Structures are given as structure tokens and as C-alpha cells.
Amino acid sequence: MTMKSEKTRPRAPLDRSGWIEAAIEVLAEQGVQGMRIEVLAKNFGVTKGSFYWHFKDRQDLFNAVLQTWRDGRIRDIHKQSVAAPGLEREQLLHLIDVYGATRNRKGISIELAVREWARRDAEAAAVVEEVDTWRLECTRKLFVARGVSESEAKSRSLLLYAYVFGQSLMACERYDPGIADFKRWIAELIVRE
């Protein structure tokens, strides 16, 4: 079978979750403006009727995409921030490593697309704020469990996420051969006692 015939071959109808996942892929690549029903249907090789079978309208899809992103982020944050008593420091270092890694370009693309969307849409902004609050609250609890005061725990949580998101967007691997050592030093500075 040639590539051309594979491209034009109709896909099986998408279910609701399939539409949502496909829309998230488009969101990561093209932003919210790329999530147009006609374009999505054409790209997926299905009819607009498939879309309307699962969604009331485009806003319904937008809401489902935001809900899916939010639920996935909160579930992941919760999972990544659970620590046995006495192991909070190690868990914080793990969080810095996981969220600061540049290896997940797709995740970073989705994060950036949702944040760009939130700059122009109040509902998206509310979802981003909810996710950020979860992130900050989960790390705050880890810092407090280590004996850090409430106010300092909040500050360190903000610093932790500012660092991991900021450095994950930077292309700094060639900055210095010792960049891995710099990153470890910064992580240790954030979680110090």
C-alpha cells in the first residue's frame, strides 16, 4: 500500500476520548486555533457527523480537552509528590528531575499551548490556575513535612516550579560542559534544609 492511499483511507469513527486525544495533539502542534471541527475531521479521515455524535459544539470539545489536561496533570502531580515520612527531600529532588527534564517535548508543547490558550480565554486560565495551585500545594506540603515554615514552603514551591519550567524550556545543554552539575546544585539549593 502506498503512502498516498494510507493518507486518504478513511479511519474508523473516533469515540469521544479519541477526538479529545486527537484534539490535544493538534493543540500541541497548532494551538487552539487549529482545533477547528472541519479541519480535525478532515485530518482524521472522518465526517463532521462523527464529531457531532460525541460533542454538542466546539466549546464542548474545548471543555473536554481542558478537563482531560487538568485531570491528567493533577493525577500526575499527586502521584509524583507522594513521599513516605522522612523521604520528602528525595521526593522533591525527584520532582525537580522529572518536571525539569527536557526529554518530554510533547508534554512541554501541550503545556505551552494550554498556557497560550489561557492568555486569551478565561475558562482555560481558570484551569491553568487550578493546576498550578495543585502543583504548588503538593510541593508546599513536602517542604512543610521537612520542617520548613509555611511562608518559606510557599516561596520554595514557587521557586521549584519557576526553575523546572524555565530551565525545561531553555536550550542550555551546550552552555557549559558542567550543566548537569549546575542543575544538581540548583536542585540542592531549592530543597536544602
Rank of each mutant, 00 (worst) to 15 (best):
T2G: 12
T2Y: 02
M3K: 15
K4F: 14
S5N: 11
E6T: 13
T8A: 06
P10D: 01
P10L: 02
P10M: 01
P13I: 00
L14N: 02
R16P: 09
R16K: 14
S17W: 06
S17A: 09
I20F: 03
A22R: 11
A23Y: 01
A23C: 03
A23W: 00
I24M: 11
I24W: 00
E25Y: 03
V26N: 04
V26H: 01
A28P: 12
Q30R: 15
G31M: 03
G31N: 05
V32M: 10
Q33L: 08
M35G: 05
E38Q: 03
L40S: 01
L40N: 01
A41L: 00
N43L: 04
N43M: 07
G45Q: 04
V46K: 06
T47K: 08
G49K: 10
W53I: 10
H54R: 13
H54T: 00
R58K: 15
R58T: 12
R58M: 03
R58G: 04
Q59T: 12
D60R: 09
L61I: 13
A64R: 08
A64I: 07
L66G: 11
L66V: 05
Q67A: 11
Q67F: 13
T68D: 06
R70H: 11
D71N: 15
D71I: 08
R73V: 10
R75P: 08
Q80E: 06
Q80N: 06
S81M: 11
A84N: 15
P85T: 07
G86C: 05
G86N: 08
G86F: 03
R89H: 15
L95G: 02
L95V: 14
D97W: 10
D97C: 03
D97T: 14
V98H: 06
T102N: 00
N104R: 10
R105W: 02
I108Y: 05
S109E: 02
S109L: 03
E111H: 14
E111K: 09
L112E: 06
V114W: 01
R115K: 15
A118N: 02
R120N: 10
A122L: 09
E123I: 13
A124L: 02
A125V: 05
A126C: 03
E129D: 09
V131R: 10
D132N: 13
D132Y: 09
D132R: 14
T133Y: 08
R135Q: 14
E137I: 05
C138P: 03
C138S: 15
R140P: 05
R140S: 09
K141E: 10
K141R: 14
K141T: 10
L142P: 13
V144F: 00
A145F: 06
A145S: 09
R146Y: 04
R146T: 05
R146A: 04
V148N: 01
E150V: 11
A153I: 08
K154E: 12
K154G: 09
S155Y: 05
R156C: 04
R156Q: 07
S157F: 01
S157Y: 07
L159K: 09
L160V: 11
Y161D: 06
Y161T: 06
Y163C: 08
V164L: 02
Q167L: 03
C172P: 07
D176C: 13
G178N: 15
A180E: 05
K183W: 12
K183F: 04
K183C: 02
I186C: 03
A187G: 08
L189K: 13
L189S: 12
I190P: 10
E193R: 13
